[in-house]
Simulated scan of single mutants.
Amino acid sequence: MPQDVRFDLPFDTPVSEHLEYARERHLRWVRETGLVRSRAGFEEYTSWDLPQAAARTYPHASAEDMVVLMNWFSLAFLFDDQFDAGRPDRADRIAEVARELIVTPLRPAGSVPRVVCPITLAWAQVWDRLSDGMSLTWQTRFAASWGRFLVAHCEEVDLAARGLAGNLGLKEYAAFRRRTVGIHHSIDAGERSRGFEVPPQVMAHPVMERMRDLAADTIGFMNDIHSFERERRRGDGHNMIAVLRRERGCSWEEAAAEAYDMTTACLDEYLRLEARVPRMCDELDLDADARERVGMGVDAIRHWINGNYEWALTTGRYAAAKEGPVATAERAGRGSVDDLLTV
Results as ranks from 00 to 15, higher is better:
R6L: 07
L9F: 11
F11Q: 04
D12G: 06
P14V: 02
S16I: 04
E17C: 13
E17M: 09
R23I: 03
H26R: 10
L27R: 15
L35P: 04
R39S: 12
F42L: 14
S47D: 05
A53V: 09
R56A: 12
P59C: 02
V68T: 12
L69E: 10
M70K: 01
S74Y: 02
L75P: 03
D84R: 10
A85H: 14
D92M: 10
E96D: 01
R99D: 09
P108F: 01
V116H: 13
A122D: 03
V126G: 13
R129G: 01
S131L: 01
T140F: 01
S145F: 10
V151W: 01
A152D: 05
Y173L: 10
R178T: 13
H185T: 05
G190Y: 08
V198Q: 10
Q201G: 09
V202I: 15
E209K: 15
D217E: 03
D224M: 06
R232C: 03
R233W: 06
I241A: 01
V243D: 04
L244C: 04
E247P: 00
W252E: 15
T263F: 05
Y270A: 07
L271H: 04
V277Y: 04
P278W: 07
L286M: 15
D287T: 06
A288S: 10
I301V: 08
H303A: 07
H303I: 07
Y309F: 11
R317N: 04
R317H: 04
Y318G: 09
Y318I: 00
K322P: 02
G324V: 11
P325N: 12
P325Y: 08
V326I: 06
V326Y: 11
T328K: 14
G333R: 07
D339Y: 03
V343D: 15
V343S: 14
